[in-house]
Simulated scan of single mutants.
Amino acid sequence: MATTVDQKLLKATKFPPEFNQKVDMQKVNVEVMKKWIAAKISKILGNEDDVVIELCFNLLEGSRFVC
Rank of each mutant, 00 (worst) to 15 (best):
K40S: 11
Q21W: 03
T4N: 07
K40F: 00
Q7E: 09
S63H: 00
F57L: 10
L10N: 05
V66W: 00
A2D: 13
S63E: 08
L60H: 02
I44P: 00
E31M: 14
K22S: 08
Q7G: 04
K14L: 09
E61T: 12
K8I: 00
D24M: 00
E18R: 02
L60D: 05
C56D: 13
V30D: 13
K27Y: 06
L60T: 14
D6N: 10
V23S: 03
T3I: 13
A38K: 13
A2K: 15
D6S: 08
E54T: 12
N29W: 03
L59D: 15
K8A: 09
M33D: 10
F15A: 00
K11P: 01
V52W: 00
P17Y: 04
Q21H: 06
K35D: 09
G62M: 11
V52D: 00
P17N: 12
E54G: 04
S63Q: 07
T3M: 14
M25R: 03
K43Y: 01
P17S: 13
V51S: 15
K22P: 05
K35A: 15
V30K: 15
I44H: 01
V52G: 01
F15I: 00
G62V: 06
G46V: 02
V30E: 14
K35I: 11
T4L: 10
M1L: 12
N47G: 14
K35Y: 07
T4G: 09
G62F: 07
G46A: 11
C56I: 07
W36D: 15
V30L: 13
L45I: 01
E31Y: 12
L9M: 10
K34G: 01
C67N: 09
E31R: 03
D24I: 01
A2C: 14
N47F: 13
M33F: 09
T13H: 01
